[in-house]
Nucleic acid binder design. Structure first.
Length: 634
RNA sequence: GCCCAGGUAGCUCAGGGGUAGAGCACAUCCUUGGUAAGGAUGAGGUCGCGGGUUCAAUUCCCGCCCUGGGCUCCA
């Protein structure tokens, strides 16, 4: 029979030949390295019997696909090991994820970190046995009976979802078998480079009303080197963690008395102010008007806006003199109050009201996470009141604004998702059609790649989300733009159109950074605390070499401060090497060293954080140099 | 909110039923040194909070709070 290869060539094999036989026909080395194959676009095992005319590409452990097959087989190996070490544990599902795999088990107790070593040891034994992994086809009902007979009720439930009468595939290694689509590696001896990483709880079917399962995460790679590189990358990423850097760089802290709320220290707050002022200036240039609205607002407004009914449990409340208030969880109802003062003409639209709005949300305790997930955070929020016909142009302008801003802060890797209508929603289908299509059109017009989150829109309208990654690759939503058909009407917002008729404006909720705190958290990790000069809390430190330059050093620092720079002097009785080390570790971009020579010549010797000698400058020239760097966002 | 692991000096961490340990940081003194750690001395702790067991608890047990990793959630 004739087999087509991906390079366009073809090969003739005996009838009944398998993917393995094809690999062996090409070369013994390839046969050893092949762990699966793609036949006519479908992934299969190496034992798959080929047919005349098949197009086949072989999957080796070197390819991304191959690593996925290894990870998938690895999760089976782990499940087998768990069931041998902990009889009574039931299997459920065990998928491949980025960097590795996990498997969820039902078991009478949680697994501990010590259990992981035992499981790992068992896994190594099993892979040393080089157990053949074979595929079996079972009748669906027979498979259900088989797993039920073994007491594997979760597996039986999973197969129960497959239509009756269909054939299902089981993979067997030694005495152990699992329902699986495959493909898998030919034997457990291929599975060598792995590490079990962590234990966790997880809910059956991802639903918190269901029972809690015991999840074990692992990582697996094609080579020892890849595994070590991955573990090394994790270690490096931990050094960038904004919570660690916040301590060593003295940026902010949290304490028990205010969970989920930040105490900003002078240096952290300095970064905040620079970011806020930058956004403020950009907003001004883009036609926004900044406002400020109350923190504590009568419950009646939240009832009108619909928040009380829907999100009451997530709001902090307070009361006085028989009135009940909520601490605002979002700014939009207040912005509508500002809009509602006075009459608006269609000529006023779009009207863009911006606020650095501090919001409190009573997030569940388990979700709090450093600066990324808080109970009190400040949004760089704005609401655009406009006519329906203006939605698309406003969205286009907003997308530009987001990318312009992110670029300034050094972010190029932006993840975009569009969330469309949820089951429970307000507004007519026609309105949703229009709003969703204006969002799609805007993204397409900008040539942006984006994903779709079906049904994930807010109840009041669809949205686009712009997300950034933290040092461990976790994705955090930052920017967003959301169309809202509901709130302007509920809260009585109006404008007068060309024919003197009262109309309800559409409201666009939008934020560029999202939460100031979250954005700064990502910023800290992105730069590993080594902020560019314009963002750095301390831009330069003037260090004297010995006591005789104390006054001069201090005068240089004062002069730079007068020019608007954040500069400190270090006049301590320490050697200059000690001071240079200390301020380098504190991520100060520029260290200005002054000895007798500099004092006599009215200059400073400038050293960069990376240790580069930038040169000797007069104080005025140093000011110029720093100004240029700041303007270039360096 | 759920599961697991933690909480000891300002920071990073060790320890362990019987007066609490290190390094760094800090203070004082000596040293005045030219670009990543000069030396000496010293100060510092209700061992997260509350109960229990015990002659004795920071250590063992229970509850709670917070932090971390996941899960669920995220207007």
């Amino acid at each position: 029979m004739n087999i087509q290869l991906p390079d366009g060539s073809s090969r003739t094999l005996a009838d009944g030949a398998t993917a393995y036989d094809l690999a062996a026909d090409i070369g013994a080395g390839l046969a050893r390295a092949t762990i699966a194959a793609t036949v006519n676009g479908k992934q299969v095992d190496v034992s798959h019997v080929l047919s005349d005319g098949d197009t086949v590409s072989l999957i080796t452990e070197k390819s991304a696909e191959g690593v996925e097959v290894i990870r998938h087989s690895m999760s089976h190996l782990m499940a087998m090991a768990v069931q041998e070490v902990f009889p009574g544990a039931q299997v459920t599902i065990g998928p491949v994820i980025e960097g590795g795999f996990y498997y969820d088990f039902a078991y009478e107790r949680a697994f501990t970190p010590e259990d992981l070593s035992k499981i790992e040891e068992k896994m190594r034994q099993l892979c040393n046995q080089k157990l053949p992994i074979t595929r079996e086809e079972w009748d669906r009902d027979a498979a259900i009976a088989h797993f039920e007979g073994m007491g594997e009720i979760y597996k039986a439930k999973l197969i129960g979802r497959i239509p009756a009468g269909e054939t299902v595939s089981l993979y067997r290694q030694g005495e152990w078998s699992d329902l699986c689509r495959g493909p898998h590696v030919p034997n457990t001896g291929v599975l060598k480079h792995f590490k079990l990483m962590k234990v966790s709880g997880a809910y059956w079917e991802g639903n918190s009303d269901n029972e809690q399962l015991r999840r074990i995460y692992g990582t697996a790679w094609a080579s020892k080197q890849d595994l070590n590189d991955y573990l090394h990358r994790l270690e490096e990423a931990e050094k960038r963690d904004h919570r660690k850097l916040a301590k060593s760089l003295d940026l902010f802290h949290l304490q028990e008395e205010a969970p989920g709320m930040i105490f900003w220290h002078p240096k952290g707050w300095s970064v905040w102010q620079v970011v806020e002022n930058e956004i403020r200036s950009v907003m001004n240039q883009h036609g926004y008007k900044e406002i400020k609205t109350p923190q504590v607002v009568d419950r009646k407004l939240w009832e009108k806006s619909g928040h009380w009914e829907k999100f009451r449990d997530d709001m902090f409340t307070t009361s006085t003199e028989n009135r009940e208030y909520a601490i605002k969880p979002m700014n939009c109802p207040c912005h509508v109050q500002v809009y509602n003062q006075g009459l608006h003409s269609y000529r006023d639209l779009p009207l863009r009201l911006a606020e650095f709005g501090s919001c409190h949300r009573n997030e569940p305790s388990g979700t709090l996470h450093g600066l990324m997930r808080l109970r009190n955070f400040v949004q760089d929020d704005a609401h655009i009141f406009c006519a329906e016909s203006q939605i698309e142009s406003e969205v286009l302008a907003f997308i530009d604004l987001v990318f312009e801003t992110y670029k300034k802060f050094g972010f190029e890797d932006v993840i975009i998702f569009l969330s469309d209508r949820p089951e429970q929603r307000v507004g007519t289908d026609e309105q949703w059609d229009k709003a969703e299509s204006s969002l799609h059109e805007a993204l397409k017009a900008k040539g942006l790649e984006y994903g779709l989150n079906p049904g994930e829109g807010a109840f009041y309208g669809p949205k686009i989300e712009f997300s950034l990654k933290d040092c461990l690759g976790r994705v955090w939503q930052c920017g967003t733009i959301q169309v809202d058909f509901s709130m302007p009407g509920r809260l009585g917002a109006e404008y007068v159109d060309e024919e003197s008729n009262k109309q309800t404006p559409v409201m666009l909720h939008r934020a560029v950074l999202g939460s100031m705190e979250r954005f700064i958290g990502i910023l800290i990790e992105e730069y590993e605390g080594k902020f560019p000069l314009w963002l750095s809390p301390v831009q330069a430190v003037v260090c004297n070499i010995s006591d005789s330059q104390r006054e001069y050093a201090d005068s240089v620092a004062k002069k730079l401060q007068k020019c608007g720079f954040r500069v400190e002097s270090d006049l301590r009785n320490e050697k200059v090497g000690y001071k240079v080390r200390a301020h380098t570790l504190q991520r100060v971009p520029l260290i200005l060293v002054v000895g007798d020579k500099e004092r006599d010549e009215n200059t400073v010797s400038v050293r960069s954080m990376s240790g580069e000698n930038i040169g000797t400058f007069t104080v005025d020239a140093c000011v110029e140099m720093m100004k240029n760097k700041v303007q270039a966002y360096e």
